[in-house]
Design a protein around this nucleic acid. Structure first.
Lengths: 198, 198
DNA sequence: GGGCTAAACGGACCGTGGTCCGCTTTCATT
DNA sequence: AATGAAAGCGGACCACGGTCCGTTTAGCCC
């Protein structure tokens, strides 16, 4: 039997008890979330439910926001995988504009689904460069394929911005729009930006 | 001498000690902010500095975020006044497109100036309908004057979204853009949206 | 297996945001 | 000026996020 090679993994691998506790904590957090919502979730409760001390929770996740961000991470990874190698039109194989519109619809749903969690994760998630960077790069590439010229990095972030939770909340809760209207508005926005190429 | 009529004011007027304490608290908060930044400001410190009890702070402002939002309110009101009746191109008198571009530049600066405070105020400020609603209505009207057709309410919020602090932080801190590049990108975005009218 | 080291653990402890309730002040009315 | 009621006040109190450090445990080398 060959020993596993360490490959190029620089992370020195987690100790087994640490890994077990991390999973126990994520499971406990998910269960408590399902029962009471993100707002009411306390770190003491998570620790107790997982059968570990509170210090362990903070050692693993750094902060309450970090724990929330870890919960979000699962869904985000699935979503990124769907973009990279899932079925069209979100994944490869469809026309760029169809992929772009599918991106918006999918991202919109994801954000609305996870809204409470995203808000609870605050800046730890919101400033997660890996997440923002991936979406931004994807949109930027699609815009390039569509023949859009100009400041693509900026346009990409500007196209993604109205899909953020605070904007969606304003439009839906205060502006009286439905989810469908928001998506239709976003699609129109994208068409205009693509069309407006001088 | 005629007694002041109550007019149509529904607010039953603040008692004099309450008004005095409110100003003292806002002044104290502003001073402490200047000294240590928004992050380090504690409610106990504000109360002590203003010479009142902590309960009074929460009675006036509801929460820490509420206090931050009240501090922001001054600047916001000045800004709204400048839009409504200040000198062009931000105020009335300039061409719609010039006003729109001036709006973006002015809003961008305002947000960057008050970034720390805005983040400290969190949702209490971010979901302030009066603020979002004013900006959104203003942009919507300008778009109308520019002959843009379509879902103006949506387009207005989408144009404002990339001027939000989280997006600006991403672009400037992680994306390597300068303030000038962001403003140039936003101007380009607006031109495209206006031009893209079918 | 024995022993060594670094990592992980846990829960007592602390600071801060937020609440509560008995006491004080304002002010309208007479 | 006296008075009554409502608004305001203050600081003891609580809950929760986050830290710290003495103790335990996993994993490795002999």
């Amino acid at each position: 039997m060959s020993k596993d090679l360490p490959l190029l993994v620089s992370a020195p691998a987690e100790r087994r008890d640490a890994a077990r506790n991390r999973r126990a904590l994520l499971d406990a957090a998910a269960e408590l979330m399902g029962g009471c919502g993100a707002e009411a979730l306390t770190m003491d409760a998570v620790a107790a439910r997982a059968g570990v001390g509170k210090g362990t929770v903070f050692r693993r996740f750094g902060s309450r926001e970090g724990l929330m961000a870890s919960l979000l991470n699962h869904r985000e990874e699935e979503w990124q995988a769907a973009v990279i190698s899932g079925p069209p039109p979100l994944g490869p194989g469809a026309e760029p504009m169809d992929r772009l519109l599918a991106f918006g619809a999918s991202r919109l749903r994801l954000h609305l689904d996870q809204g409470a969690l995203i808000e609870a994760a605050g800046r730890t998630w919101g400033e997660n460069y890996a997440v923002l960077g991936f979406a931004s790069m994807h949109v930027r590439i699609l815009l390039g394929l569509l023949g859009v010229e100009g400041n693509l990095p900026y346009l990409a972030t500007a196209i993604i911005a109205p899909l953020g939770i605070p904007v969606l909340r304003q439009q839906i809760d205060h502006g009286g729009m439905t989810e469908e209207q928001v998506l239709a508005g976003w699609s129109e926005l994208v068409q205009r930006i693509v069309k407006g190429t001088p």
